[in-house]
């Protein structure tokens, strides 16, 4: 039988999916045990007990100086910035993407500029943002917005212009104005794509967030990682990286289920 025709059953698929995770865990444990056997004060791959103690200290013990639970305080600070960034970017992209997608005049006005701006490396703008907007929250949120909005706009514009011309003409014969075509024909059909697009931009959004927090902040997941880096505190960095990853995955799943719930019609054709 050809390899392309061998399909795993549900159980097999689950086991196969878990296999790389298990391999990673085993590799870590083995590496850690080997290094610690050689040098008990090795910091690079801490043992599970060290990690657990560190997680307990970070997540379930109040900080001695501030009285906060560090992990939760950092998470709240970072997620607030991320939510503002993603929210502003999505709203801007929706308005501009729709305008450019529906009106040829707006497309002529915006498309070249957005294409140009989307090529600016956002991290290169970070010093400018810090100088102009100060070291507070604004500049960090601005970096996320600048980083992901142009791509969202271009994606929405492409989705809107890719709608069949027949559909737009049909709406015109149903007495729709330009506004009503945007509101009742184009907007509902680009919304699922906006959510998918946002899902793809969660990774870059975290990248910009952590970059901004690494340089100047007093709380946040990125701030903590870069703070303890000086002490080679891998027992803090590893749990934080895992936690950030988990947050991103959960955000992705939440957006995906939101899309399924809000736009059931988009699932029918899949």
């Amino acid at each position: 039988m050809r390899a392309i025709n061998i399909r795993p059953g549900r159980g097999t698929a689950l086991v196969l999916g878990l296999l790389p995770f298990a391999a990673l865990a085993v590799a870590y444990l083995a590496g850690s045990a080997l290094r610690l056997a050689e040098n008990p004060s090795d910091k690079l791959l801490p043992a599970l007990t060290t990690l657990a103690a560190s997680i307990d200290l970070l997540a379930f013990t109040p900080d001695r100086r501030t009285g906060d639970y560090l992990l939760w305080a950092d998470t709240a600070a970072s997620l607030t910035r991320l939510a503002w960034g993603l929210g502003i970017a999505a709203s801007l992209a929706l308005v501009l993407g729709l305008l450019a997608g529906v009106l040829p005049v707006m497309r002529a006005l915006l498309a070249p500029f957005v294409a140009f701006v989307s090529m600016v490396p956002p991290l290169a703008l970070l010093p400018i943002l810090f100088i102009v907007m100060g070291l507070g929250e604004t500049s960090k949120i601005a970096l996320i917005v600048i980083g992901i909005t142009p791509i969202l706009i271009r994606d929405l514009m492409l989705t809107a212009t890719a709608l069949p011309r027949e559909m737009i003409v049909k709406a015109e014969t149903l007495s729709a104005s330009s506004w009503l075509i945007a509101l009742r024909v184009v907007l509902p059909q680009v919304m699922p794509r906006l959510i998918d697009s946002l899902r793809l931009q969660i990774g870059p959004a975290f990248l910009f967030l952590i970059a901004a927090e690494a340089i100047s902040s007093d709380a946040g997941l990125g701030y903590r990682i870069f703070l303890v880096r000086r002490y080679l505190a891998m027992e803090v960095i590893f749990p934080y990286v895992a936690w950030i990853t988990l947050l991103a995955v959960l955000l992705d799943l939440a957006l995906s289920s939101l899309r399924r719930r809000m736009f059931p019609w988009a699932e029918v054709g899949r």
């Binding site: 027949e166 559909m167 049909k170 709406a171 149903l174 019609w265 988009a266 054709g269």
Partner: peptide, 29 residues
């Protein structure tokens, strides 16, 4: 405009509206 209706071979109906929503769309707008 609304004085001339059209039916194409494809893409004549709106995928995001139910059957009832599709038929109501014109008079609603």
């Amino acid at each position: 405009g609304p004085d001339r209706g059209v039916v194409y071979q494809r893409y004549s109906v709106f995928p995001h509206l139910t059957v009832l929503g599709n038929v109501m769309l014109g008079p609603e707008m």
